[in-house]
Amino acid sequence: MEPIIFGENLSFSYKEKEILKDLNFAFKKGERVGIVGESGSGKSTFLRLLAGLLSPTEGVVSVAGETKAEGIIKKISMVMQEAMLMPLTIKENITLGKDVPKERINEVIKAAKLDGWIDSLEEGIDTYLGDRANEISGGQAQRIAIARAMLKDADIILLDEPTSSLDKETTTEVLEALDRLMEGKTVVHVTHHPDLLKGYDRIITVKEGRFYE
């Protein structure tokens, strides 16, 4: 089967500093790939290349048949370490201005396990997160980010340490929501915790700009 994600002689540099060197890789559809490695080894950089947020300095990256950044970015969904909440309502934070039917929003809210909390709010989903964005818990914030990612319903899910800023208990809740997000998708998950990668198909270690499996 044709791989859904692959790289050929892929290199990436910030200015003169070469971060990723001549990588060749291929991920199959539905595969779960874990990426580990020391801080600064280039894990996030790699994920940004897969997301179409960066373009390779040399070589090719292909994601769901797209090789241009503008094309790639449409095919993926992403959850990062920071939830990236904005001073908008909960609903706007999830939809980011897109016209989405109410049922669909309720669906992702349930799947992201946000329904209990949102029901307890006086203004529900229309609660403004302006100054309160730093009052809501890290777990809640991250689950909003997950709901946002679910709504995009891309075939490829990219995760960049989505639980690393959370404590143990919240991590469990967020992981449950993440499981729902990853159902039936191709997943690339960057993390410092190999125990989060149990049951993954492949685990790649990034070291000095190269991949080791």
Partner: peptide, 9 residues
Amino acid sequence: NFEAVKVFG
């Protein structure tokens, strides 16, 4: 939030 803005169009 530039990256989220781009990823989610």
